[in-house]
Amino acid sequence: MNHFFSRAGRLLAIAAIATTSLCFPPAAAAKKLNVVTATTDLAALAQEVGGDKINVESIARGYQDPHFVEAKPSFLLKLRQADLLVIVGLQLEIGWLPPLITQSGNARIQVGANGYLDASQFAEILEIPQGSITRAMGDVHPLGNPHYWLDPDNGRRVAKGIAGKLGEMDPADAAYFQQRDQDFERRLAEADKKWQAEMKPFHGRKVVTYHNSAPNFARHFGLEVVGFIEPRPGIPPTPSHTLDVINMMKRDHVKVIMVEPYFDRKTPDSIARETGGTVVEYLPSVGGVKEVTTYFQLFDYDIALLTKAFQANP
Protein backbone atom coordinates (compact mmCIF):
# COMPACT_ATOMS: atom_id res chain seq x y z
CA MET A 1 0.00 0.00 0.00
CA ASN A 2 2.77 2.40 1.02
CA HIS A 3 4.79 1.37 -1.90
CA PHE A 4 1.88 2.02 -4.12
CA PHE A 5 1.38 5.52 -2.74
CA SER A 6 5.01 6.59 -2.89
CA ARG A 7 5.41 5.28 -6.38
CA ALA A 8 2.15 6.86 -7.48
CA GLY A 9 3.35 10.16 -6.09
CA ARG A 10 6.62 10.13 -7.94
CA LEU A 11 4.87 9.12 -11.10
CA LEU A 12 2.38 11.95 -10.63
CA ALA A 13 5.14 14.53 -10.32
CA ILE A 14 6.93 13.24 -13.38
CA ALA A 15 3.72 12.81 -15.34
CA ALA A 16 2.66 16.36 -14.56
CA ILE A 17 5.75 17.68 -16.28
CA ALA A 18 5.79 15.11 -19.05
CA THR A 19 2.20 15.69 -20.16
CA THR A 20 2.79 19.38 -20.32
CA SER A 21 5.75 19.05 -22.61
CA LEU A 22 4.65 16.19 -24.82
CA CYS A 23 0.92 16.12 -25.29
CA PHE A 24 0.27 19.69 -26.26
CA PRO A 25 2.71 21.18 -28.74
CA PRO A 26 2.33 24.95 -29.10
CA ALA A 27 -0.12 26.08 -31.75
CA ALA A 28 1.33 26.63 -35.21
CA ALA A 29 2.48 30.22 -35.73
CA ALA A 30 -0.41 32.28 -37.05
CA LYS A 31 0.19 34.67 -39.89
CA LYS A 32 -1.37 37.62 -38.11
CA LEU A 33 0.54 39.28 -35.30
CA ASN A 34 -1.08 38.69 -31.92
CA VAL A 35 -1.14 41.97 -30.03
CA VAL A 36 -2.20 42.17 -26.38
CA THR A 37 -2.61 45.59 -24.78
CA ALA A 38 -3.01 46.54 -21.14
CA THR A 39 -5.98 48.85 -21.78
CA THR A 40 -8.76 49.22 -24.34
CA ASP A 41 -7.47 52.58 -25.55
CA LEU A 42 -4.18 51.07 -26.64
CA ALA A 43 -6.13 48.23 -28.26
CA ALA A 44 -8.23 50.76 -30.19
CA LEU A 45 -5.12 52.60 -31.39
CA ALA A 46 -3.39 49.35 -32.35
CA GLN A 47 -6.50 48.30 -34.25
CA GLU A 48 -6.52 51.60 -36.17
CA VAL A 49 -3.00 51.10 -37.49
CA GLY A 50 -2.92 47.29 -37.55
CA GLY A 51 -6.15 46.79 -39.49
CA ASP A 52 -6.79 43.19 -40.44
CA LYS A 53 -3.11 42.24 -40.26
CA ILE A 54 -3.23 41.89 -36.48
CA ASN A 55 -5.38 40.32 -33.77
CA VAL A 56 -5.65 42.67 -30.84
CA GLU A 57 -7.07 42.15 -27.37
CA SER A 58 -7.03 44.22 -24.20
CA ILE A 59 -6.54 42.85 -20.69
CA ALA A 60 -8.44 45.55 -18.77
CA ARG A 61 -12.00 46.51 -19.66
CA GLY A 62 -12.92 50.08 -20.42
CA TYR A 63 -15.22 50.40 -17.40
CA GLN A 64 -12.64 49.08 -14.98
CA ASP A 65 -10.17 51.06 -12.87
CA PRO A 66 -6.88 50.36 -14.69
CA HIS A 67 -4.94 50.67 -11.42
CA PHE A 68 -6.75 47.70 -9.89
CA VAL A 69 -7.01 44.89 -12.40
CA GLU A 70 -6.83 41.36 -11.04
CA ALA A 71 -3.99 39.25 -12.42
CA LYS A 72 -6.33 36.43 -13.45
CA PRO A 73 -4.82 33.26 -14.94
CA SER A 74 -7.18 33.59 -17.91
CA PHE A 75 -5.07 36.58 -19.00
CA LEU A 76 -2.07 34.25 -19.12
CA LEU A 77 -3.80 32.34 -21.89
CA LYS A 78 -3.83 35.53 -23.97
CA LEU A 79 -0.30 36.56 -23.00
CA ARG A 80 1.36 33.25 -23.80
CA GLN A 81 0.20 33.59 -27.43
CA ALA A 82 1.14 37.27 -27.74
CA ASP A 83 3.76 38.50 -30.19
CA LEU A 84 3.52 42.04 -28.87
CA LEU A 85 2.45 43.44 -25.50
CA VAL A 86 1.68 47.15 -25.41
CA ILE A 87 1.45 48.75 -21.97
CA VAL A 88 0.50 52.21 -20.73
CA GLY A 89 3.59 52.37 -18.54
CA LEU A 90 4.47 54.97 -15.89
CA GLN A 91 3.68 52.28 -13.28
CA LEU A 92 -0.06 52.31 -14.03
CA GLU A 93 -0.03 48.50 -14.28
CA ILE A 94 2.54 47.88 -11.54
CA GLY A 95 -0.02 46.20 -9.27
CA TRP A 96 -1.00 43.43 -11.65
CA LEU A 97 1.01 43.13 -14.87
CA PRO A 98 4.52 42.06 -13.69
CA PRO A 99 3.45 38.65 -12.27
CA LEU A 100 1.41 37.99 -15.43
CA ILE A 101 4.44 38.67 -17.62
CA THR A 102 6.65 36.41 -15.48
CA GLN A 103 4.15 33.55 -15.38
CA SER A 104 3.27 33.72 -19.07
CA GLY A 105 6.30 31.68 -20.04
CA ASN A 106 6.44 33.81 -23.18
CA ALA A 107 9.98 35.00 -23.89
CA ARG A 108 8.82 37.40 -26.61
CA ILE A 109 7.01 39.79 -24.25
CA GLN A 110 9.35 39.88 -21.25
CA VAL A 111 10.40 43.35 -20.08
CA GLY A 112 12.99 44.66 -22.53
CA ALA A 113 12.31 41.98 -25.15
CA ASN A 114 11.37 42.95 -28.69
CA GLY A 115 7.66 42.29 -28.11
CA TYR A 116 7.38 44.57 -25.06
CA LEU A 117 6.32 48.09 -25.91
CA ASP A 118 5.85 50.83 -23.31
CA ALA A 119 3.60 53.32 -25.09
CA SER A 120 4.38 56.14 -22.64
CA GLN A 121 7.69 56.69 -24.44
CA PHE A 122 5.81 58.21 -27.39
CA ALA A 123 3.50 60.47 -25.41
CA GLU A 124 3.77 63.85 -23.79
CA ILE A 125 3.71 63.21 -20.05
CA LEU A 126 2.38 65.76 -17.60
CA GLU A 127 2.90 66.18 -13.86
CA ILE A 128 6.27 64.45 -13.58
CA PRO A 129 7.01 65.01 -9.87
CA GLN A 130 9.99 67.21 -9.12
CA GLY A 131 11.97 66.69 -5.95
CA SER A 132 11.25 63.98 -3.41
CA ILE A 133 7.92 62.20 -3.19
CA THR A 134 6.44 60.12 -0.39
CA ARG A 135 3.31 58.02 0.00
CA ALA A 136 1.98 60.71 2.33
CA MET A 137 0.95 62.26 -0.99
CA GLY A 138 -1.24 59.21 -1.64
CA ASP A 139 -0.73 56.79 -4.50
CA VAL A 140 1.35 59.13 -6.62
CA HIS A 141 2.97 58.00 -9.85
CA PRO A 142 6.66 58.88 -9.56
CA LEU A 143 7.15 58.82 -13.34
CA GLY A 144 4.32 61.23 -14.18
CA ASN A 145 0.58 61.08 -14.78
CA PRO A 146 -0.22 57.86 -16.67
CA HIS A 147 -3.62 58.99 -18.02
CA TYR A 148 -1.98 60.53 -21.10
CA TRP A 149 -4.12 58.83 -23.76
CA LEU A 150 -7.00 61.30 -23.28
CA ASP A 151 -5.22 63.83 -25.50
CA PRO A 152 -5.72 63.21 -29.25
CA ASP A 153 -2.19 64.47 -29.91
CA ASN A 154 -0.87 61.69 -27.71
CA GLY A 155 -3.22 59.25 -29.42
CA ARG A 156 -1.64 60.22 -32.72
CA ARG A 157 1.89 59.83 -31.34
CA VAL A 158 1.18 56.46 -29.71
CA ALA A 159 -0.50 55.15 -32.89
CA LYS A 160 2.58 56.18 -34.86
CA GLY A 161 4.82 54.41 -32.35
CA ILE A 162 2.74 51.24 -32.52
CA ALA A 163 2.71 51.37 -36.35
CA GLY A 164 6.50 51.63 -36.32
CA LYS A 165 6.76 48.66 -33.97
CA LEU A 166 4.36 46.55 -36.04
CA GLY A 167 6.35 47.36 -39.17
CA GLU A 168 9.53 46.31 -37.44
CA MET A 169 8.00 42.97 -36.40
CA ASP A 170 6.28 42.32 -39.73
CA PRO A 171 8.41 44.09 -42.37
CA ALA A 172 6.34 42.69 -45.24
CA ASP A 173 3.37 44.74 -44.05
CA ALA A 174 5.31 47.80 -42.87
CA ALA A 175 3.99 49.95 -45.71
CA TYR A 176 0.44 48.85 -44.94
CA PHE A 177 0.83 49.93 -41.28
CA GLN A 178 2.38 53.26 -42.31
CA GLN A 179 -0.41 53.94 -44.75
CA ARG A 180 -3.06 53.12 -42.15
CA ASP A 181 -1.28 55.33 -39.62
CA GLN A 182 -1.29 58.26 -42.03
CA ASP A 183 -4.95 57.68 -42.75
CA PHE A 184 -5.66 57.57 -39.00
CA GLU A 185 -3.69 60.78 -38.46
CA ARG A 186 -5.70 62.55 -41.15
CA ARG A 187 -9.06 61.39 -39.78
CA LEU A 188 -7.98 62.26 -36.24
CA ALA A 189 -6.91 65.77 -37.30
CA GLU A 190 -10.32 66.30 -38.89
CA ALA A 191 -12.18 64.97 -35.87
CA ASP A 192 -10.03 67.06 -33.55
CA LYS A 193 -10.98 70.19 -35.47
CA LYS A 194 -14.64 69.34 -34.89
CA TRP A 195 -14.06 68.57 -31.16
CA GLN A 196 -12.10 71.76 -30.68
CA ALA A 197 -14.89 73.75 -32.32
CA GLU A 198 -17.47 72.13 -30.05
CA MET A 199 -15.44 72.82 -26.93
CA LYS A 200 -14.39 76.33 -27.96
CA PRO A 201 -17.33 78.13 -26.31
CA PHE A 202 -16.32 76.55 -23.00
CA HIS A 203 -12.61 77.36 -23.03
CA GLY A 204 -11.31 78.22 -19.60
CA ARG A 205 -14.21 76.52 -17.80
CA LYS A 206 -13.32 75.10 -14.41
CA VAL A 207 -14.09 71.49 -13.53
CA VAL A 208 -13.56 69.10 -10.63
CA THR A 209 -12.58 65.48 -11.35
CA TYR A 210 -12.83 62.48 -9.00
CA HIS A 211 -9.33 61.10 -9.61
CA ASN A 212 -6.55 63.01 -11.28
CA SER A 213 -7.10 61.22 -14.58
CA ALA A 214 -7.88 64.06 -16.98
CA PRO A 215 -4.97 66.54 -17.03
CA ASN A 216 -4.12 65.78 -20.67
CA PHE A 217 -7.75 65.98 -21.73
CA ALA A 218 -8.24 69.27 -19.86
CA ARG A 219 -5.16 70.84 -21.38
CA HIS A 220 -6.00 69.81 -24.92
CA PHE A 221 -9.56 71.14 -24.73
CA GLY A 222 -8.84 74.24 -22.67
CA LEU A 223 -10.47 73.19 -19.40
CA GLU A 224 -9.08 73.97 -15.99
CA VAL A 225 -9.13 71.18 -13.38
CA VAL A 226 -9.35 73.04 -10.07
CA GLY A 227 -9.90 70.19 -7.64
CA PHE A 228 -10.42 66.49 -7.00
CA ILE A 229 -13.03 64.56 -5.02
CA GLU A 230 -10.23 62.36 -3.71
CA PRO A 231 -8.22 64.21 -1.06
CA ARG A 232 -5.10 62.52 -2.48
CA PRO A 233 -4.71 60.07 -5.35
CA GLY A 234 -6.15 56.67 -4.36
CA ILE A 235 -7.50 57.90 -0.99
CA PRO A 236 -11.32 57.81 -0.75
CA PRO A 237 -13.19 61.08 -0.05
CA THR A 238 -13.22 62.38 3.52
CA PRO A 239 -15.93 64.65 5.01
CA SER A 240 -13.56 67.57 5.62
CA HIS A 241 -12.10 67.43 2.12
CA THR A 242 -15.59 67.16 0.62
CA LEU A 243 -16.57 70.31 2.52
CA ASP A 244 -13.48 72.09 1.16
CA VAL A 245 -14.44 71.06 -2.37
CA ILE A 246 -18.01 72.33 -1.88
CA ASN A 247 -16.77 75.69 -0.57
CA MET A 248 -14.23 76.04 -3.34
CA MET A 249 -16.84 75.20 -6.02
CA LYS A 250 -19.27 77.74 -4.62
CA ARG A 251 -16.60 80.42 -4.35
CA ASP A 252 -15.11 79.86 -7.82
CA HIS A 253 -18.44 79.13 -9.49
CA VAL A 254 -17.46 75.59 -10.56
CA LYS A 255 -20.44 73.62 -11.80
CA VAL A 256 -19.18 70.47 -13.46
CA ILE A 257 -17.85 67.36 -11.70
CA MET A 258 -16.27 64.73 -13.93
CA VAL A 259 -16.46 61.20 -12.49
CA GLU A 260 -14.97 58.01 -13.89
CA PRO A 261 -17.54 55.19 -14.26
CA TYR A 262 -15.78 52.95 -11.72
CA PHE A 263 -16.13 55.31 -8.76
CA ASP A 264 -18.98 55.53 -6.29
CA ARG A 265 -21.39 58.34 -7.18
CA LYS A 266 -22.48 59.08 -3.59
CA THR A 267 -19.99 61.84 -2.75
CA PRO A 268 -19.99 63.55 -6.18
CA ASP A 269 -23.81 63.47 -6.24
CA SER A 270 -24.06 65.07 -2.80
CA ILE A 271 -21.50 67.73 -3.79
CA ALA A 272 -23.52 68.44 -6.95
CA ARG A 273 -26.68 68.86 -4.85
CA GLU A 274 -24.92 71.25 -2.46
CA THR A 275 -23.43 73.37 -5.23
CA GLY A 276 -26.20 73.12 -7.82
CA GLY A 277 -23.74 71.56 -10.24
CA THR A 278 -23.86 68.57 -12.55
CA VAL A 279 -22.07 65.23 -12.36
CA VAL A 280 -20.73 64.07 -15.70
CA GLU A 281 -19.91 60.37 -15.78
CA TYR A 282 -17.31 60.71 -18.48
CA LEU A 283 -15.38 57.81 -19.96
CA PRO A 284 -11.65 57.65 -19.40
CA SER A 285 -11.38 54.67 -21.77
CA VAL A 286 -12.76 53.08 -24.90
CA GLY A 287 -15.37 50.47 -23.98
CA GLY A 288 -16.56 52.37 -20.89
CA VAL A 289 -20.03 51.95 -22.36
CA LYS A 290 -20.99 49.43 -25.00
CA GLU A 291 -21.46 51.92 -27.86
CA VAL A 292 -17.98 53.42 -27.54
CA THR A 293 -15.72 51.04 -29.40
CA THR A 294 -13.20 53.31 -31.12
CA TYR A 295 -10.81 56.06 -30.12
CA PHE A 296 -12.96 58.56 -32.06
CA GLN A 297 -16.18 57.55 -30.32
CA LEU A 298 -14.47 58.02 -26.95
CA PHE A 299 -14.00 61.75 -27.56
CA ASP A 300 -17.36 62.07 -29.34
CA TYR A 301 -19.05 60.64 -26.24
CA ASP A 302 -17.14 62.67 -23.64
CA ILE A 303 -17.41 65.95 -25.52
CA ALA A 304 -21.15 65.50 -26.09
CA LEU A 305 -21.63 64.93 -22.35
CA LEU A 306 -19.44 67.86 -21.35
CA THR A 307 -20.86 70.40 -23.77
CA LYS A 308 -24.37 69.45 -22.60
CA ALA A 309 -23.35 69.91 -18.97
CA PHE A 310 -21.64 73.25 -19.67
CA GLN A 311 -24.70 74.51 -21.56
CA ALA A 312 -26.97 73.48 -18.68
CA ASN A 313 -24.73 75.34 -16.20
CA PRO A 314 -23.80 78.60 -17.87
Partner: peptide, 20 residues
Amino acid sequence: SVERIIPFPKGIFLSATGQL
Protein backbone atom coordinates in the same frame (compact mmCIF):
# COMPACT_ATOMS: atom_id res chain seq x y z
CA SER B 1 10.37 24.04 -9.65
CA VAL B 2 9.09 23.51 -13.19
CA GLU B 3 5.77 24.99 -14.25
CA ARG B 4 3.92 25.01 -17.51
CA ILE B 5 0.55 26.14 -18.80
CA ILE B 6 -1.27 23.29 -20.52
CA PRO B 7 -3.35 24.42 -23.50
CA PHE B 8 -6.96 23.44 -22.96
CA PRO B 9 -10.10 24.38 -24.87
CA LYS B 10 -13.16 26.31 -23.64
CA GLY B 11 -11.21 29.09 -21.92
CA ILE B 12 -10.06 26.79 -19.16
CA PHE B 13 -6.67 27.58 -17.73
CA LEU B 14 -4.66 24.53 -16.71
CA SER B 15 -1.18 24.59 -15.31
CA ALA B 16 1.02 21.88 -13.88
CA THR B 17 3.88 22.32 -11.46
CA GLY B 18 6.47 19.75 -10.45
CA GLN B 19 8.95 20.51 -7.67
CA LEU B 20 11.93 18.70 -6.23
